[in-house]
Design a protein around this nucleic acid. Structure first.
Lengths: 197, 197
DNA sequence: ACGCTATCTTGACAGTGTCAACATAATAAA
DNA sequence: TTTATTATGTTGACACTGTCAAGATAGCGT
């Protein structure tokens, strides 16, 4: 039986296969033509399901925000403690390390520079960020994070630090694996607020 | 008089013109063919002066590390104070903001991922980093930065925060200009160590 | 059965980096 | 000074890339 002219569920298949390529080879190796070949479809079939390559990348990034949001939600159910905060910091860096190329996509210039985000991606990332700020506020009330500044400010500052460290690790500027865990702990401590006396 | 077959100083001219394109249009718009056309030379003339495109990009990044090193050197001559530290934080973010695409190149994955750096670039960046660590040590001795950890660790952690914030600004994730200065101050404060009682 | 629309295909175009082969100029050796 | 060598610049070609236009095929509602 020859393969049918219509694929049936090309949208999902493309996303799935694109995820594989992204995970294994990185965004630089994710070309539309290669993806199409791997799925067994012509070069331009994708354009009936995604506006362009950017839309595909946005869809991939969006799924990343969903998993990050889930991770946040589960940790927010736990007791608010310094240990929980460190655990989150640890998991944030782990997520970045284990999803190298996806993280690039989620927070990299490829999509964000020049505001190329899909509306759908915008709202997904905003939702995740808002949840993060909410948790920061809760931790502030517990005295774990600095109370002197607004949840938004503290959340932004903490996230900047996490993101910066993640980037340095991912970009190969910090490479020593044993250092990384140690440094993660230190950053976690550095971000916390401790009683002054 | 027709233009001579040999350019005379093509290496410098290529670097200069590449810098212009990088500054005005970004690395994504810096193509070898466009650069060659702009200089008035054939597409492949560059290959007699640079091994490949990556080498050209490394050379550009290298010049960035030189200016960052100079900035560090001048501020290190000043009195070691909390104000000096904040000034450096401010200048770091300013450098990133004013040299958008150059900063991308210096710390971005394009060069660092997969260890594509030129030996020359490696040593330039290492020199700048070592100087930074040295200053951190001096600030530790003044009680401005945390003394409990090694200069290397504290320097890495601080730099991660600066880099992270710079990236978020450059990638258009933080855009509000008025917020940026305020946040820079907060990060500067957050990184400093204050007496516990 | 007919027409409409969604889906998929091939052909084409303007880009990209870079290798091979060749042309020209400057420089070192005879 | 002539000759050989090396440095520098040129054109042609190749394998890529994303995406538009036009045409082919299938499914679905009327």
């Amino acid at each position: 039986m020859p393969k049918p002219y219509h694929h049936g569920d090309l949208y999902s298949t493309l996303l799935l296969e694109a995820k594989k390529i992204l995970k294994n080879e990185g965004v630089s190796e994710l070309s539309i033509r290669k993806l199409a070949a791997q799925v067994g479809v012509s070069r331009t079939a994708l354009y009936h399901h995604f506006k362009d390559k950017n839309s595909l990348l946005c869809a991939l990034a969006e799924s990343g925000f969903a998993t990050q949001k889930n991770a946040l939600q589960t940790i927010m159910k736990k007791e608010k403690s310094r240990e929980a905060f460190e655990e989150y910091v640890q998991s944030y860096i782990s997520f970045a390390a284990n999803n190298h190329h996806l993280y690039d996509l989620m927070y990299g210039q490829l999509i964000w520079r020049n505001q190329l985000q899909t509306d759908s991606l915008k709202s997904a990332s905003r939702t995740t960020f808002k949840l993060w700020i909410k948790w920061v506020e809760e931790l502030q009330m517990e005295g774990i994070l600095d109370k002197e500044n607004s949840p938004l400010r503290v959340g932004q500052a903490c996230w900047a630090s996490l993101h910066g460290f993640a980037r340095l690790v991912l970009d190969g500027i910090y490479v020593n694996q044993s250092e990384i865990k140690e440094m993660t702990q230190q950053i976690s401590k550095m971000l916390q607020s401790f009683p002054k006396n």
